[in-house]
Design a protein around this nucleic acid. Structure first.
Lengths: 204, 204
DNA sequence: CCCACAACTTGCGTGTCACGCACATAGTGC
DNA sequence: GCACTATGTGCGTGACACGCAAGTTGTGGG
C-alpha cells in the first residue's frame, strides 16, 4: 500500500499494473457497455504506455484488466474487518468495515456500471466480488472463534456479505435511486443479519 | 422440459444443445482441471456430431458450454421454490426446494469439481450459480409479499442462498468429507436463516 | 565503483478462437 | 405440394493468448 515499503522494482510493477487497468477501465467507459469489442488490447497498452506483450504479462484478458480495481478492493475486505475493535459484535463490525471500505471514496458510478452491466464482463465482475470471500472467511472465523474447516457459518456468511455488496451496487445504479452508496449498502447488509448470530462455536 | 410440448425444431435444438454441453463437460473431465487448454473446440464439436461453426452458434466459449448444465439447473431455482406449499415459512420452503432441486439426482462429483476448481472456468461457474438469483428474487418476493424494486431483502436473500449453495458444493468436494450433498446443503442453508425473517413487508 | 545476476520489457511467430457472410438443408404452415 | 423460415455448414478474417529469445533496467556483493 505504502510505496516506501517497496523497492523500485515493486513500485514500477505496481505503477504499470495500475496504469494498464486504469487505461483499460477508462477506454471501456468511453466506448460504453455495447462497444467493448472496439476496445483493442493494442489501444489499452498504448494508453498505458507499454507494449501489447507487456499488457499480457499483467492480464490475460480485457475483462481481467478492466475489473482489476474492483478485485483489488475486494482483496482488502478481510483486512478491513480485522481492523475493527475486537469486542464489537460481528454484524456491527461487518457493516462498519464494509461501509468504510466501499465508500471511501464514493465509488465511481460509471466504472461500477461498466463492470456490472456489461455481459462480457459479468463473469470477471463476479470473480472480483467473490475475491472478498476468502479473506472475509478468515476474519469472520477469527472474530467468532469458529473453525472454517468444520463449520460452514463463516463461509456462508462471507458469501452472503459479498452478495449483499453486489446487490447494493446493482440497486445503487438504478436510475431512480438518489441515496448514497453508504445508505444502500447499510440496508443491504442489514438484511444479512436479521438477528445476531449465536454465541460461541456451533455444532458442525 | 417435456419434449412433447415442443415442435420438432425446438426438440432438435434442445438435443443439439445438450449434446454439445454434455460432450464439452465429458471431454473436460477426461483432461482434468489442468488440461482444459487441450480440449479444442473442434474436438467438442466432433464429439457432439456437429461442425465447429454450429458449436459457436450455441456457445461462444468453452466455459459456457461446459457450465451450461449447471446454469440450466440454476434457472429452475425460482420454479422449485414456487412449487412449495403457500403457507410454508420461507426458510423451510427454501431449504426443501433447494435440496430437492440440487440432490435429485445427487450431483456428479467429477463434473462439479471440474467447474468449481478450474480457474479458467471460475467466472462462468459463478455466472451459473448467480443465474439462480433472478428467479429466486421473484419467488421470494411473491412469498413474503415484498416489492423487490423497493426492498432489498429478496435480492440479498437470493444472493445469500446462491452463495450458500456454492459454499456447500465447495465443502462437499473436500477430500475428507463423507456427508451426502443434501446434508451439507441443509447445514449451509441453515446458516442463511439463523432466525425467521420478519413478518409482512419491511420499511424501505 | 563496478560487475554479475535477476527481473522486467519487448518483438516475433504460432496456434486457437469468435464471428460475419453466403449457401445448403430441414421443418412448418397454407 | 409449395413457398417460407429456421437452422447447419464451409470459408475467410481479424484479434488474441502465450512461448521464446534478445534487449534493458534494477539489485546487491566485492
Amino acid at each position: 500500500m505504502n510505496d516506501d515499503a517497496m523497492d523500485l522494482r515493486a513500485r514500477n510493477k505496481q505503477a504499470t499494473r495500475e496504469a494498464i487497468s486504469h487505461a483499460a477501465l477508462r477506454l471501456a467507459i468511453e466506448q460504453g457497455p455495447h462497444g467493448l469489442a472496439l476496445v483493442r488490447v493494442h489501444d489499452i497498452a498504448a494508453a498505458a504506455g507499454v507494449s501489447s506483450r507487456t499488457y499480457n504479462n499483467y492480464f490475460s484478458s480485457r475483462a481481467e484488466a478492466i475489473c482489476a480495481f474492483q478485485a483489488d478492493q475486494s482483496r482488502r475486505a478481510g483486512q478491513a474487518l480485522r481492523s475493527r475493535p475486537a469486542g464489537e459484535p460481528l454484524d456491527q463490525a461487518v457493516i462498519a468495515a464494509m461501509i468504510e471500505l466501499y465508500t471511501d471514496p464514493e465509488p465511481d458510478k460509471a466504472g461500477l456500471r461498466m463492470i456490472m452491466s456489461t455481459p462480457e464482463l459479468e463473469g470477471e465482475a463476479l470473480k472480483a466480488f467473490t475475491m472478498a470471500e476468502g479473506p472475509l472467511v478468515e476474519a469472520i472465523a477469527a472474530r467468532t472463534g469458529t473453525d472454517p474447516g468444520r463449520d460452514l457459518f463463516p463461509a456462508v456468511t462471507a458469501a452472503a456479505i459479498a452478495g449483499a455488496i453486489r446487490v447494493a451496487g446493482r440497486h445503487w445504479l438504478e436510475p431512480g435511486n438518489t441515496d448514497s452508496f453508504a445508505t444502500v449498502l447499510r440496508h443491504a447488509l442489514s438484511c444479512v443479519f436479521p438477528a445476531t448470530p449465536p454465541e460461541g462455536p456451533r455444532d458442525r
